[in-house]
Design a protein around this nucleic acid. Structure first.
Length: 299
DNA sequence: AATCAGGAGGAAG
DNA sequence: CTTCCTCCTGATT
């Protein structure tokens, strides 16, 4: 992808809504101010920065990794036992890195996040190939992840090809509040899927077009991405496989999206987890705590 | 009030 | 067949 000219986007006004965590609140349409620059360039770099903004508070690993950390390795992240992630990091350290560094880091994270989303949703990376059902999954997932106002049926029965053919204006027509953001997200997916070689279809297809994902796999996938899902579920002790569900309603919603089960809730999800007791996949830790479980075979 | 434990039946692969 | 969804009763926190 072309290296965008270093346009200075003010760090404060990015695309992401502020980190308002309303617990269990229904996704009503809230007052959400749709402001964003009009030009695509600006939109994209602002978007990457918004990603960065989202990643930054969760863990400080990028700072230790150094500038050339775009690799796809798995750094031994979070050495602590019980990291507290609810704390907001002070947003001051951004100026120490050049915009190029930040962008390459963030682009790498974006690619990994898209890859993860493909696994979690069981869809391919290339939006053009999506079925209408895939499109709905992607919409639900994206609006949930970024707390966009729900689009409802505005994109019903659209396949990936038609979705990609829509202009930003058409997105905004169908979803006045969040359509532009959705369009920007789709742009990232489109450019990501035809840019790099490493993961077009072979890698993703082999891992995601297989069997239906199991709940324990799904939970592990969420746990692997603390940047994105750490607010909902996180490790208490990664070595021992102990994790805590911080927001049961949200985890259940994500699982419901994945399984096309809109009525999913934590009551039912936890019942499925309990089935793992007998199978020796998940158990309660020695000191039982609410919403805390443990993988029997941590890795 | 939310979470936990587990029986039961059925849907879907 | 297995895994999970759904609904349930009752206990625990």
């Amino acid at each position: 992808m072309g290296s965008a000219s270093p346009s200075a986007a003010p760090p404060g006004c990015l695309l992401l809504p502020p980190d308002g965590l309303e617990k269990g609140a229904a996704p009503e349409r809230r007052a959400w101010s749709p402001r964003r620059p009009a030009t695509p360039d600006q939109g994209l770099s602002a978007f990457y920065l918004s990603y960065f903004d989202m990643l930054y508070p969760e863990d400080g690993t990028w700072a230790a990794k150094g500038p050339a950390a775009g690799a796809r390795e798995e750094p031994p992240e979070e050495p602590e036992q019980c990291p507290v992630i609810d704390s907001q990091a002070p947003g001051g350290a951004l100026e120490e890195h050049s915009l190029e560094q930040v962008q390459s880091m963030v682009v790498g994270e974006v690619l990994k996040d898209i890859e993860t989303a493909c696994r979690l949703l069981s869809i391919t990376a290339d939006p053009v190939g999506w079925s209408p059902g895939n499109v709905q999954k992607w919409l639900l997932w994206t609006e949930h992840q970024y707390r966009l106002p729900p689009v409802g049926r505005a994109f019903q029965d659209l396949g990936g090809k038609e979705l990609c053919a829509l202009s930003e204006e058409q997105f905004r027509q169908r979803s006045p509040l969040g359509g532009d953001v959705l369009h920007a997200h789709l742009d990232i997916w489109k450019s990501a899927s035809n840019s790099e070689e490493s993961w077009t279809d072979s890698e993703v297809d082999s891992s995601c077009s297989g069997q239906p994902i199991h709940l324990w796999q799904f939970l592990k996938e969420l746990l692997l991405k603390p940047h994105s899902y750490g607010r909902f579920i996180r490790w208490l002790n990664k070595e021992k496989g102990i994790f805590k569900i911080e927001d049961s309603a949200q985890v259940a919603r994500l699982w419901g999206i994945r399984k096309n089960r809109p009525a999913m809730n934590y009551d039912k999800l936890s019942r499925s987890i309990r089935q793992y007791y007998k199978k020796g996949i998940i158990r309660k830790p020695d000191v039982s705590q609410r919403l805390v479980y443990q993988f029997v075979h941590p890795i």
